[in-house]
């Protein structure tokens, strides 16, 4: 049963607009059970939210994205978590990860202009206690987002009738 429930989430992850009726058809589960599974997952925050992937660049809307490497000295008892929380609570932070390697936190920050992002790093992020240093990489071009290739996605070019 667990596997079937996961199938419901996989379908929704691919397309959040798939209707419960369709999911029931695709999984062979009764409609009521699909609805119950989704509702429960929403309540338990297994489903965090339903979002839409938009290619804003196509609309001429330019958002500046930056990937910031942050080196942090871990603190007694709380490790990286306390400083991480100080950082991720800023709304400018879109995503954030603790990573292995030459730095500790990988922070994705967005802003309207480079100055805005730079200002955030200089005034909010870098001065935080226990931060040893930051390296800011501005994003120049987006090729693939969340598994979707933004331009030149392949199409199947099948003959209309093949026996």
């Amino acid at each position: 049963m667990k596997e079937k429930e996961k199938e419901v989430f996989r379908i929704l992850e691919k397309d959040a607009r798939t209707k419960p009726e369709q999911i029931a058809g695709m999984t062979g589960l009764p409609l009521a059970q699909v609805e119950k599974t989704i509702k429960k997952a929403e309540q338990e925050r297994v489903i965090l939210k339903y979002k839409t992937l938009i290619n804003w660049e196509k609309l001429g809307e330019e958002t500046v994205w930056a990937l910031i490497e942050v080196r942090v000295s871990p603190q007694r008892d709380v490790g990286f978590d306390a400083v991480a929380e100080r950082i991720y609570r800023f709304p400018q932070v879109r995503s954030m990860y603790l990573v292995s390697g030459t730095y500790d936190l990988s922070v994705v920050v967005t802003g309207k202009t480079m100055q805005e992002v730079a200002g955030f790093v200089a005034q909010k992020l870098a001065p935080l206690e226990s931060i040893q240093g930051t390296v800011t990489h501005f994003l120049l071009k987006r090729y693939k987002e969340d598994g979707e290739i933004l331009e030149g996605e392949e199409q199947t070019r099948r003959q209309p009738l093949i026996l």
Partner: peptide, 13 residues
């Protein structure tokens, strides 16, 4: 604008 269910091959590349 024909929807074809008449093919005999995968729609994956």
């Amino acid at each position: 604008g024909v929807i074809s269910l008449g093919v005999g091959e995968p729609d994956f590349v």
